[in-house]
Write a protein that binds this DNA or RNA. Structure first.
Lengths: 150, 150
DNA sequence: GTCAAACCATTTGATGTCGAACGATTGAAG
DNA sequence: CTTCAATCGTTCGACATCAAATGGTTTGAC
């Protein structure tokens, strides 16, 4: 595993770290996905339901920011969730630019069914690492992710 | 940053680590992407060109495996690269099921233009971490990613 | 109060992504 | 040789994703 690129030590180290980071994220996602898919949801749809479940009703631009997606994308994902009756849109009275998105009872029931197993699956994944290693990984990822601006 | 979920220590730790890992991967990708896009390429297209550049001509199923994508997906990405003249398909003589994909001179020129700056950008990203931290991150990611089976 | 700038959701067009179904080809078993 | 299973690339339908353009809404400056 690792890059085939010939360069300075710093370059090779950075490239290898980068590749392993991406692979790890992709692998874990790929292993978590089938469980979500078995409930007929995509990861994006699950992300929306989970956010609404834990944070309460949100506007679409808040969802977009939370999930790191474009506003156009959120519009479509909400469309598909709404068609299936898991969420509802309501135009805000005070600021009619905003559309607040609510879980329906059916949506709440669904996410309440899915979420515990999701946590269990993540715990299983993370058992590859000791608690100390998990904290180290989290800290290093945070350092890398927070690096704003270019 | 972190989950709002109330659960056991193990659950909260696993969830936090998971979220930070995903955020880090997404953030780094989001910062690397504009450079690639400025050359008119998507990340998938770049991935294909880079693989062909460093590994030589490959069959589509080899590309699919390398890039962790479905075969149907690779077909489309190659279609789009071929339309723009960066790669060429050739049916294998010995095994006519296989389609080998080649870089054209134009494709080779393009990836040779892009790649050095890509390495530089990754090095910049990784400068958020010390060399030792990078190696630790790489090791932990590898442990997490390699966890096969369910 | 008017107007411009900022904000919000939607639409559109291009690309990516998957899983499933399909047709062609190969390899192996009998 | 024949047949059957496996492999490979393509196609299709559904959904995701972005950037850019659009139209409605609000806010702030004057």
């Amino acid at each position: 595993m690792g890059t085939h690129y010939k360069g300075t030590d710093e370059e090779v180290r950075a490239l290898n770290t980068y590749i392993k980071l991406m692979r790890a994220a992709e692998s874990v996602t790929a292993r978590l996905n089938p469980r979500i898919a078995s409930y007929g949801l995509t990861l994006s749809q699950f992300g929306v339901l989970e956010a609404l479940y834990h944070l309460g009703p949100l506007c679409q631009h808040e969802l977009a920011k939370k999930l790191l997606k474009s506003s156009g994308n959120i519009t479509l994902v909400i469309d598909n969730l709404e068609k299936r009756g898991f969420v509802r849109r309501r135009r805000e009275r005070t600021d009619r630019r905003l559309v607040r998105v609510y879980l329906t009872p059916g949506g709440r029931r669904l996410i309440r069914d899915i979420f515990p197993g999701h946590v269990t699956a993540i715990v299983q994944e993370m058992r590859a690492l000791t608690p100390r290693e998990q904290e180290t990984l989290g800290r290093l990822c945070q350092k890398l992710g927070l690096r704003q601006r270019k």
